Simulated assay, not measured.
Amino acid sequence: MPEYMRQNLTFMLALIFSAACGAAGTINEDAHRMHAIRIIIGEAIITATLDDTPSSRDFIAQLPLNIDLKDYASTEKIAYLPHKLSTTNAPPGIDPQIGDITYYAPWGNLAIFYQDFGYSQGLIRLGRITAGLEHLSYPGAKSAKVELATGH
């Protein structure tokens, strides 16, 4: 590829990326708004994005949040939230993927999947871990802070 085409491509990609990133903590992808968060466990930082849904917006309204992430069934880390989240427009359930951040409406808890799991009635996807999933491979419980990420 000629140098002038490579420079134009680099410029266009930079322009697209800058247009995709909005205010601090917000990423616009395909006209779908997402919110960047951090989960801090000791010195470890897990980054994630949350979808723009009524459930996720309710979760964001509770941030920053200090929680105890407890192991559940060697599959997920769970934590109870101070307030239940909206289930407006939520599907009846989902089949979570590894790295999904979800809300289990029947119990009112956050559930972050680090192992594969099947369909669960009442499970709502809030978002997805983008980096640091390996920091959830501990036994027992650990304190964590969940906050909106600032800047890109």
Rank of each mutant, 00 (worst) to 15 (best):
K77R: 00
G127S: 03
G122E: 08
A105W: 01
T75V: 08
Q121D: 15
G108C: 04
A48E: 01
K84M: 14
I78V: 14
G118Q: 09
G93K: 05
K70G: 13
A48F: 05
I112F: 02
F59V: 02
P54F: 09
D52H: 09
R128I: 14
A105E: 00
S55A: 15
A90Q: 07
G108L: 00
G127Q: 04
A79C: 09
W107K: 14
Y104L: 04
I78M: 08
A90H: 05
A111G: 06
S86Y: 05
Y72R: 06
Y104E: 04
Y114Q: 03
P54K: 05
A105R: 02
A105G: 00
A90T: 01
L126F: 06
T87V: 12
I98D: 00
I94A: 02
Y80N: 08
A111Y: 06
I60L: 14
R57V: 05
N66Y: 13
L110F: 13
F113G: 14
I101N: 07
A79P: 06
T88R: 15
D95V: 04
R128P: 07
Y80A: 06
T47N: 11
Y119H: 13
T75G: 11
Y72C: 07
I124C: 08
H83W: 07
Y114A: 04
K70T: 14
T87R: 03
F59C: 05
K70W: 14
I101H: 02
A90I: 07
T49P: 05
G99I: 04
P64H: 11
D100K: 13
L63H: 06
A111M: 01
G118F: 00
L50Y: 08
G127M: 01
N66K: 15
L65F: 00
P92W: 03
P92M: 01
W107V: 08
N109P: 05
H83C: 13
A105K: 00
Q62I: 11
A111P: 09
H83L: 15
D116I: 11
A111W: 10
P64A: 01
I98H: 01
Y103A: 05
T49W: 09
G127K: 04
F113W: 11
A111Q: 08
L65V: 10
R57C: 00
P54H: 03
T75L: 12
T130R: 01
D52M: 00
G108Q: 02
A79H: 02
R57E: 11
A79Q: 08
A61M: 09
L50F: 06
P106H: 03
L63Y: 01
I94T: 02
S86H: 12
T88L: 15
Y72S: 12
D52V: 01
D68S: 13
L50I: 08
Y119D: 11
Y103M: 02
S55Y: 12
T49L: 12
L110I: 06
I112S: 03
Q115W: 06
Y72M: 13
A61H: 11
Y119L: 07
Y103C: 02
T75R: 15
Q121A: 15
A105N: 06
D71S: 12
K70I: 10
D116N: 13
T88N: 15
D116F: 10
S56Q: 10
I60R: 14
T49K: 11
H83P: 02
R125V: 04
F113N: 12
P92F: 04
D52I: 06
H83K: 15
S55D: 12
T87W: 06
T53I: 01
